[in-house]
Nucleic acid binder design. Structure first.
Length: 596
RNA sequence: GGUUCCGUAGCUCAACUGGAUAGAGCAACUGCCUUCUAAGCAGUAGGUUGAAGGUUCGAGUCCUUCCGGAAUCACCA
């Protein structure tokens, strides 16, 4: 983007020198030239025609000629209607590349800023599914993007480990479990517990059905079934701290955590701190009291506590029930405050939570703001769209979900199958192959979920496998591996490429210009991705870069036998491209491989 | 019903926030491996951007109305 700013400044000067027309940088628009026109950047003339007082063609030629004479960036131009397309000077780009190659890492040193990022945040009554994966990859990637810009990032999740849903699993296990465990059944712990949750729902439905047949209304039947009564009784016992129940609760949650941790490990994601709802669900009450004293909240006659946000275009919101117990909002207020106590230097918190809770977070941030927390205005709800299946929403209660572990396992199988088909596995031994399949599978899955704008809902069809060709993770891995193979060959041939002085190169190809133009945008892209909390921007960028490199690779021979400075330059350009691809993939949580 | 979001090639997604002839990938069809990895490259075909108006030099993007879809509006979590 720097480059566009520079061109704008040059254009301003031309306007002034040639036409005595003064305008500010905001009046000028320089766009990237669309692919079917030649050039890199385009000045749009229409808005200036009145001020320039001559016709389009004349104006375009005068501006273009003047820039060719005076610009340090622009080497040539062509005029199509009101669009003045610029070509870029080789030596300018080479200079930029040279600067970039020595600086691109060191630019992002620690900046002492800190943030908190929440993501994943599962319930302990069911295994992770595809929706969680979108959440996790998003949160993890945004964390990495901020980290790469020098922030200290605290990755946290809140585990919803208490409540009626966990009690349901407990009831079912007590009734039907016969003391089985994940170990005895050789089942992953989260799956094991999740199955009892489903069992509960199934038996409960049967019971309700029987009750309704006996003439009980459906609403009553749901409440009156023996299973539901027992679940509620367990919840009360849990809240009283009943030792038996707590023991069972700990045992079953322990199984679930083993399962979650195994999934997290398999997708290479970790957290700096876990919060458990069982420890935070009472937080916030104190803050509500303070809010009442400050007259931000008010008490109804039945002693329930509310906030009236109708002036801010929200509704009234309940904060404490009439019996004094807290609601979701209460806990979130308390937890937010606790997090900033735990990480006091943080300037903001990013919540990775689905867009079904858009309203909730708007209200939460508003309340925190009213309570006087300065960071409240900086907090951000990283809201993402749901993943729909071809026949509608995923519904965990009905078992209509795409299970995370299963999906990963299918992806690995596909990676293996494809690799064997393509005859890619000859140079590997067994253990390396397992790692390779893992990397390819995860690259495909992560990239598939991250390349879509987070805000948008996406469709997932389990019958169509995720692609490995085209705009995909494996394509990016492949491009990287290809380049590393070039570098390896350069080293074998003993061709120097790291220390060459770029300035001896006088002319470079369009392919090379495209690559450099993309490379030097690196920092701008990172900042844009961070500002918009959008890994999809990184995806688009790394795809463009890889695509441009592959065209270059295909059309221009690197090892042409001459082994002169041009060869060295091409290798150096390849080397730095691969390094940038690697760090971009790293931001997406994707591990590279040197060969595939 | 109120509020918010969405609708782009057969399918999955882009479009630098108002710029050109709306781009990629998949699927289909053509070429390119005796030379750096063909998970690649080059090309063909595919569109009234849900519909109709409006704003202006210029609209997928902004405004209005309609059609279709989703979310949310609980003393549920």
């Amino acid at each position: 983007m720097q480059l566009q700013e520079k061109i704008k400044n040059e254009v301003i000067k031309v306007f002034k020198d040639e036409f005595n027309y003064k305008c500010s940088i905001n009046d000028i628009s320089i766009d990237q030239t669309p692919k079917n026109f030649s050039g890199f950047y385009t000045l749009i003339l229409f808005p200036h025609l009145k001020s320039l007082k001559i016709n389009l063609e004349e104006a375009g030629n005068i501006i273009g000629d003047s820039l060719i004479r005076n610009s340090e960036i622009i080497s040539d131009y062509n005029l199509v209607k009101g669009f003045l397309n610029f070509d870029l000077k080789s030596d300018y780009l080479i200079g930029e590349l040279s600067k970039f190659s020595s600086e691109y890492k060191s630019d992002f040193k620690k900046n002492k800023r800190e943030i908190i990022v929440e993501f994943s945040s599962p319930n302990t009554n069911k295994p992770l599914h595809l929706g969680h994966l979108r959440n996790i990859f998003l949160g993890d990637s945004v964390s990495k993007i901020y980290k790469s810009l020098g922030y200290k990032v605290h990755k946290v999740q809140i585990i919803n480990d208490r409540g009626i849903h966990i009690c349901k699993s407990m009831v079912a296990w007590k009734r039907y479990g016969n003391d089985k465990s994940p170990d005895t059944e050789k089942v992953k712990g989260d799956k094991f517990v999740g199955d009892y949750y489903v069992k509960f729902e199934f038996e409960h439905k049967k019971e309700v059905f029987d009750l309704v047949k006996k003439g009980v209304s459906e609403v009553d039947a749901v409440k009156k079934s023996s299973l539901m009564k027992e679940a509620k009784s367990l919840l009360r016992k849990w809240e009283r701290g009943d030792k038996e129940i707590i023991k069972l609760w700990k045992k079953m949650n322990g199984w679930v955590y083993d399962g979650f941790n195994s999934t997290y490990r398999s997708i290479n994601v970790s957290f700096d701190k876990n919060y458990y709802e069982s420890e935070t669900y009472l937080l916030g009450k104190k803050n509500i009291e303070e809010g009442i004293l400050k007259k931000i909240f008010y008490k109804e006659e039945d002693s329930s506590v509310w906030i009236d946000l109708s002036k801010e275009n929200f509704d009234k919101k309940l904060l404490l029930r009439s019996d004094g117990t807290s609601v979701y909002m209460t806990q979130d207020i308390g937890t937010a405050i606790k997090r900033f106590e735990d990480f006091p230097k943080s300037e903001k918190q990013i919540y990775t939570v689905g867009n079904e809770q858009d309203y909730h977070f708007k209200v939460l941030f508003k309340i925190l703001d009213k309570l006087g927390y300065s960071w409240a205005k900086e907090c951000y709800h990283l809201s993402y769209g749901m993943i729909d299946l071809p026949d509608g929403k995923m519904k965990s209660r009905e078992g209509k979900v795409v299970d995370a572990d299963e999906l990963i396992s299918v992806m690995k199988d596909t990676a293996q199958k494809r690799s064997i088909e393509l005859g890619k596995i000859d140079d590997f031994d067994g253990e390396d192959l397992t790692k390779l399949y893992q990397k390819i599978a995860l690259s495909a899955l992560k990239y598939h979920l991250l390349k879509v704008d987070p805000k948008k809902k996406m469709l997932f069809n389990p019958d169509e496998s995720i692609d490995f060709q085209g705009n995909t993770g494996p394509f990016l891995l492949y491009t990287y591996a290809r380049i590393r193979s070039i570098i390896k060959r350069a080293e074998i041939l003993n061709i120097e490429y790291g220390k060459i002085n770029f300035s001896i190169i006088k002319h470079i190809s369009v392919n090379e210009k495209k690559i450099i133009d993309l490379l030097v945008n690196y920092k701008y892209i990172l900042e844009t991705a961070a500002e918009s909390y959008s890994p999809s921007i990184i995806c688009n960028y790394v795809y463009d870069l890889s695509k441009s490199y592959n065209s270059f690779y295909q059309e221009e021979k690197i090892f042409d036998g001459k082994n002169n400075e041009t060869t060295s330059f091409k290798i150096a350009l390849s080397d730095i491209t691969s390094k940038v691809i690697k760090s971009l993939l790293n931001l997406l949580g994707i591990d590279i491989t040197n060969k595939m």
